[in-house]
Design a protein around this nucleic acid. Structure first.
Lengths: 135, 135
DNA sequence: CTGAATCCGAAAGGATACTG
DNA sequence: CAGTATCCTTTCGGATTCAG
């Protein structure tokens, strides 16, 4: 079974002595939370105001949206622009860097759509075979 | 600024009335935790035993590794094989579905490597311009 | 409208000890 | 070796209230 490799080269090893950290750990730390990628997805449709974001990103609280867009802005993925109107107007949009990332997220979303059914079936089967476990 | 779109079609809208859920939310629920992606990355290098996984996925506790591989197995991304030797031998490997996903993760890892420096600079700049915030 | 501040419950995850 | 069980800390994130 050491021949179980498929010829596909391995992803950067994470946490090995020679590779104390890997790219994936970074992405996850930045986007692994509940809202970041959903906000990016919404902004991939164009510039949005704060309220628009909150309406379109289902379930996000005001607090978490604030924290999320701030972190994304800090990482240079999102551009925030404030207009001194009254009441205040603030818009958010993806930077070039943010857009390049959103392209990758699309492939992930596509993968999920394509495999959603199969994954659901796997879970069903697994649950049937492991009645005691709650998971 | 409603013209802020770049011509790139939008990612599937998440949470809108017409699209109560989107693929991204699913992927995140499955892989958004701290270890799933790293385990997949490690298994992209071939079959691994439990101990090997724990050694190569830096920082994962025995408990979390157990939970993680079980969830991945439940979703049909990982195949677990137990051999009744003594002491017990258990191996883990990616299924075809898991491998198809690991391909996408590679592009994410590449993106991270390519943008790590720029993101770090963005953060530095942001932190300098917002001295009061701790983030 | 766009936040900031506080409070609090839920959940994730680590450490440790024990088992087949 | 490959888990399981328990405890306990930390973090995440929702609800609410206040402010510019």
């Amino acid at each position: 079974m050491s021949a179980g490799n498929t010829g596909v080269t391995m992803l950067e090893p994470c946490g090995s002595p020679t590779h104390p950290d890997c790219g994936l750990r970074d992405v996850l730390d930045r986007l692994g939370d509940r809202w970041s990628v959903l906000v990016i997805a919404e902004l991939s449709g164009g510039t949005r105001r704060f309220r628009e974001l909150q309406r379109n990103v289902h379930g996000v609280s005001q607090r978490m949206l604030t924290l999320t867009v701030r972190r994304l802005e800090r990482d240079g993925l999102v551009l925030r622009t404030a207009y001194p109107t009254v009441p205040m107007t603030v818009t958010y949009e993806l930077t070039d860097r943010g857009r390049s990332l959103s392209e990758l997220l699309r492939s992930l979303a596509d993968w999920s759509s394509a495999n959603r059914e199969a994954v659901a079936q796997s879970r069903h089967r697994w649950d049937a075979e492991h009645p005691t476990d709650v998971t």
